[in-house]
Design a protein around this nucleic acid. Sequence first.
RNA 1: GGCGCUAUCGUCUAGGGGACUAGGACGGGGCCCUCUCAAGGCCCAAACACGGGUUCGAAUCCCGUUAGCGCUACCA
Length: 478
Amino acid sequence: MPEAPRVRFAPSPTGYLHVGGARTALFNWLFAQHTGGAFVLRIEDTDKARSTDAHTKVILEGLTWLGVTWDEGPYFQGAENARHRADAERLLALGKGYRCFCTKEELEAQRNSGDGSTDSFKYDRRCLRLPAEEIARRVSQGRSSVIRFRMPDAEIAWEDSVHGRISFQGTDLDDLVILRSDGTPIYNMAVVSDDIAMRITHVIRGDDHISNTPKQIALYRALGAPLPQFAHVPMILGSDGKKLSKRHGATAVGDYQDQGILPTAMRNFLALLGWSPGEDREILPVDEMVRLFSLEAIQKKSAVFDTAKLEWMNGQYLSAMPADEFLGPVERQLALMGVATGSRDIRPIIDAVKSRARTVLQIAERVAVRMDGSFAVLDAKGEALIKKMGPAYGANLAHAVAAVKNLSAPDWTAANLIAAITAMAEQNGLKLGDAMQPIRVALTGSTVSEPVNELLEVVGRDNAIRRIEEAVTSSSSH
RNA sequence: GGCGCUAUCGUCUAGGGGACUAGGACGGGGCCCUCUCAAGGCCCAAACACGGGUUCGAAUCCCGUUAGCGCUACCA
């Protein structure tokens, strides 16, 4: 019986948690959950110039928000410098690496000396041919050097869990530098050293790393370490088919959080970007995702991030969830908007509006309108209706208040309200719509809302009557 | 340029030699429901990149072309 899998997610804290990274993390997590393996989180902060603690914090928060939990870590790559260096020096001692004294300028000159840019540059191994005495002399002179890895000539191939067999020729690969002159490791060295030390069994990462993989495999072999299973997941593109970037608007998971996307919806949406359970299913509870997940079912081609579908999915989660479950986020948003809820239970209002909303932001806005008329904004359709009805708008509203005023506060229920309005419409020979729509517009400024009787109930007797009467007054004044 | 990866409706995808008149979902259009909208139900438009093979039979396997993307740093 093989050991339980160990996977890792290894972001660089040089920016926010992007949806692509979030999805990679999610796939790792799903795989770990499915197999009973361990998920380790490693922060790759070796680029000291660009890494910040603030970014690390945001990344951890983003993962937590999405429900991606880790079993180990976070480990910080920067803290493992001594091991990275030791591994690079071991390769040197083994004769699988060599010192290179070429300066950046010399390398640059070598690059440009080829016949134009038609040729790809490969280091010509001039320092590999240096006699031992010469190397010793230069080192004793204190000349700065890097350690390069001597790339074997043989074919390097692996069976990728999502792509199948991928192979490279060692002869096409450069003798990459693994240790800088300042003693810090280059990315590929650090990753391999860490993945070996952390006993990572499955490397699940973006397919922009496919070209790094043969280099890393060569390093594993040179270090005498067993290879992990590799799985390269496709990238996420913007709506124009280009790699997702700020130009496309929201790309960080925090942006979606701010827009009122639920973490469960985001997780569901991300899981289905590039992975399919193989059934015609869209809304998938997390335990189902875990049960059905497999690396082999991951798509090979990159996927376009479709905000419209995300919002649809969010709407599905919203309407299926009881108001209790997102009371917190709505209240937080209301506070931001300056709406005091006081001791009032806003759950009935949330229930009234949530099936028409796609984000919790929209819910909060609509709750605000129902609690406080000053948040109502007359939209184009509302304005058109007032214009079209002319004097009937105010007149019908006046009839409506009169009819509805007879209801005392305890009788102010949706059932009684619909009865009262229907009776009023009948008495006055009004079509139901001509009685209802003005109320909707007076209360919300819009021609779209929950059924008018429910709207009235949720706005509350005194508030509703006052607002409708104000609408009557202002409509007769112009 | 070299090396590598990829290619099914606008988008996410099912499909893995015959069950394909290519299925589902988002988005779009229409109808029903209805005081409006949403939800829900029903319906419509919409795809196997191209060219060659292999095969009785190809969306599916092979080769080529084209296109897109990635890598080609003392970045990660």
